[in-house]
Amino acid sequence: MAQKGLSSIKILLAKVGLDGHDRGIKVIARALRDAGMDVIYSGIKQTPEAIMDAALQEGVDAIGISILSGAHMTLFSELLKLRKRKKLTDMLLIGGGIIPPEDIEKLEKKGVNKLWGPDTSTEDIIHFLKEKLLQSE
């Protein structure tokens, strides 16, 4: 039953900043699609501005960011600021990459809805989205 509801989730996946490593995000894209979601992939080396513009135009429920460059503090802060400015706070902002636990804590406090470090299972991500997005239906 829950799987059925999932088909109404639309998510934008993007790589932010100077970071071209896109194997991880492509694995996630496939897993989310196979879980019944509509997955938009907007590619590598995106600016926060471009990502939020795309999220706005596409009308997604969530924005998933992959970041392996180490610039997560700056870039996620920028994304949060833009999400607010563009009145997109009803969209979830989630992400994953090589992010130390203490930074994850800081960023989640600032408003990022969820961050994952290495070795996260795609199931965890699917479960999170399901729980967050299908609740309010």
Partner: peptide, 21 residues
């Protein structure tokens, strides 16, 4: 849309690159 999973991969935007802006 996949008729099996019900999901979809939407990859057309990736070609826009800087034109997306």
């Amino acid at each position: 849309r996949s008729s099996i999973s019900g999901g979809a991969f939407l990859g057309d935007r990736i070609r826009l690159k800087e034109k997306a802006q």
